[in-house]
Deep mutational scan, measured.
Amino acid sequence: KKRTSIEVSVKGALESHFLKCPKPSAQEITNLADSLQLEKEVVRVWFCNRRQKEKR
């Protein structure tokens, strides 16, 4: 499966949402994916990866 490159503006939106809520619910992920026009899975994985980055 190909990697999804996320635009800078979208990254900013994801980042600001992450600061408010690092573990969004499935519903929040769906809403966020719809508003940013990304697949739910891409948003879910982004949050997962971002939480791991926070641990490092």
Rank of each mutant, 00 (worst) to 15 (best):
K1A: 10
K1H: 04
K2M: 11
K2L: 13
K2Q: 06
K2H: 04
T4V: 09
T4L: 10
S5E: 11
S5G: 13
S5M: 15
I6C: 09
I6L: 12
E7H: 12
E7T: 15
E7D: 14
V8M: 15
V8N: 14
V8Y: 04
V8E: 15
S9A: 14
S9G: 13
S9L: 07
S9E: 14
V10C: 09
K11D: 14
K11R: 11
G12P: 11
G12C: 15
G12A: 15
A13W: 05
L14N: 00
E15V: 02
S16P: 04
H17P: 02
F18P: 00
L19A: 12
L19G: 06
K20E: 05
K20T: 06
K20C: 04
K20D: 07
C21M: 05
C21E: 14
C21K: 04
C21T: 10
P22S: 05
P22Q: 15
K23S: 14
P24C: 02
P24L: 01
S25V: 04
S25W: 01
S25E: 05
A26S: 08
Q27Y: 07
Q27P: 06
Q27K: 09
I29W: 01
I29A: 02
I29C: 03
I29G: 01
T30F: 10
T30A: 12
T30H: 08
N31P: 02
N31L: 13
A33Q: 00
A33S: 11
S35H: 11
S35N: 10
L36V: 03
Q37G: 13
Q37L: 07
Q37K: 12
Q37W: 04
Q37R: 10
L38Q: 03
L38F: 01
L38G: 00
L38K: 01
E39G: 06
E39P: 09
E39Q: 05
K40Q: 15
E41A: 05
E41P: 00
E41G: 05
V42Q: 12
V42S: 09
V43C: 02
V43S: 01
V43E: 02
V43N: 04
R44H: 03
V45W: 08
V45Q: 14
W46G: 04
W46S: 04
W46F: 02
F47D: 05
N49E: 14
N49Y: 04
N49I: 08
N49D: 07
N49F: 05
R50N: 01
R51D: 05
R51Y: 15
R51H: 05
R51F: 04
Q52S: 13
Q52G: 08
K53W: 08
K53R: 11
K53M: 08
E54K: 03
K55C: 08
K55V: 12
K55D: 10
K55A: 12
K55N: 13
R56P: 06
R56Q: 15
R56W: 06
